[in-house]
Design a protein around this nucleic acid. Structure first.
Length: 330
DNA sequence: AAGCTCGTCAACCGCACCCCA
DNA sequence: GTGGGGTGCGGTTGACGAGCT
């Protein structure tokens, strides 16, 4: 019995022999693949077209890079996966010479375990937590928060200068619902492969600090090219901010500059919470608005046992293909 | 040495999408 | 508008080898 794509032709399955490989290579070298379904017949193979295509794409293509993944490739996979999820073909496009199948296998066999070992959920890249509040269009959150951003404040002296000569520089963030800051002291995740990452500013790479899917940021897109004043008008739980000139925000943006920042700015956070709490108590119903752009979208808000992942922040700072990728996929 | 477990990875399956008649 | 063929993609399977008991 043949495959559905091959009618009733009897086809061979399983591993390819060197002879079969040779036939396929020879045929494709002289004729190209054209219509894949006709390839097996023309190449003299007892395979279905689909199998030929797969063999060529995943194994025989001359431009394939063999061997194990480099650290750089691994980082790229994690970064892109954080944005795109399990879209292996899209991820593979960022890795010349690698196939979607290869990336997928590498993810499942290696990266997934590494993330889990770091306490990160491989699907969301968030910290794994025992308590999870799920918010969707059918479930109102208990409350919501609103961040205030001080665009005029400067970074502390001991923190690195981040070049912010940004083109379409946008910072978007979401935050978890929580009006009891004393109960949920701030906690951010850090690590080389997930969560908030500090990257060398001299490389002008600042894509970091994700806590939610990019789709969650979509509703902020109306603010993308607005002036700083108008862009500082985020919906409850979601916000967008123009960082065209310079920006030092509070809350969501601080992890970019190192884990100690919260120690330095605890007072600032308390003030922020005050505003947030007040805001939340009046705007619970507005949270639904955030969820209206996609019927299927869910919002996951994670709480640590004794702490909260306060902001789900995504900061995109120009000059990095990852930024573009993130926005392209919003 | 034999049997078992586990990890890796090539290959397959089924579905979705696109294009064209 | 619709149905069928071709293609692309993500999830899953299963063969195989390495390591352990």
């Amino acid at each position: 019995m043949g495959h559905h794509c091959c009618g009733k032709h009897k086809v061979k399955r399983g591993l390819w022999s060197p002879e079969e490989d040779e036939k396929l290579i020879k045929h494709l070298a002289t004729h190209g693949h054209g219509c894949w379904s006709s390839v097996p017949k023309l190449a003299g193979l007892q395979r279905c077209g689909k199998s030929c295509r797969l063999r060529w794409i995943n194994y025989l293509r001359p431009d394939l890079k063999r061997g194990s993944f480099t650290e750089q490739e691994e980082r790229t996979i994690i970064d892109v996966h954080r944005i795109l999820g399990n879209r292996w073909a899209q991820i593979a496009k960022h890795l010349p010479g690698r196939t979607d199948n290869e990336v997928k296998n590498f993810w499942n066999s290696c990266i997934k375990k590494k993330l889990l070992a770091q306490g990160l959920d491989p699907n969301t890249h968030n910290l794994l937590s025992s308590n999870q509040a799920k918010i969707n269009k059918n479930n109102k959150p208990i409350n919501s928060q609103h961040f205030t951003i001080d665009q005029n404040s400067s970074p502390p002296k001991d923190e690195p200068h981040i070049p912010l000569d940004l083109k379409a520089s946008i910072a978007a963030f979401t935050c978890i619902p929580n009006n009891e800051p004393h109960k949920y002291p701030l906690k951010f995740k850090y690590g080389p492969t997930g969560g908030y990452q500090y990257q060398n500013p001299s490389q002008n790479k600042l894509v970091t600090g994700f806590g939610t899917s990019c789709s969650s940021v979509e509703s902020t897109s109306n603010n993308l090219s607005s002036s700083p004043s108008s862009s500082l008008n985020p919906a409850p739980g979601l916000g967008a901010m123009n960082v065209e000139n310079s920006m030092w925000g509070t809350g969501a943006f601080e992890p970019l500059f190192g884990p100690d920042r919260f120690v330095h700015h605890q007072q600032q956070q308390q003030e922020m919470y005050k505003v947030n709490t007040e805001f939340c108590s009046n705007n619970v119903q507005n949270m639904e608005m955030v969820n209206t752009f996609d019927d299927s979208s869910d919002f996951d808000f994670d709480f640590g046992d004794d702490s909260a992942l306060l902001p789900f922040a995504a900061v995109y700072c120009d000059a990095n293909s990852m930024d573009q990728l993130a926005w392209d996929n919003c």
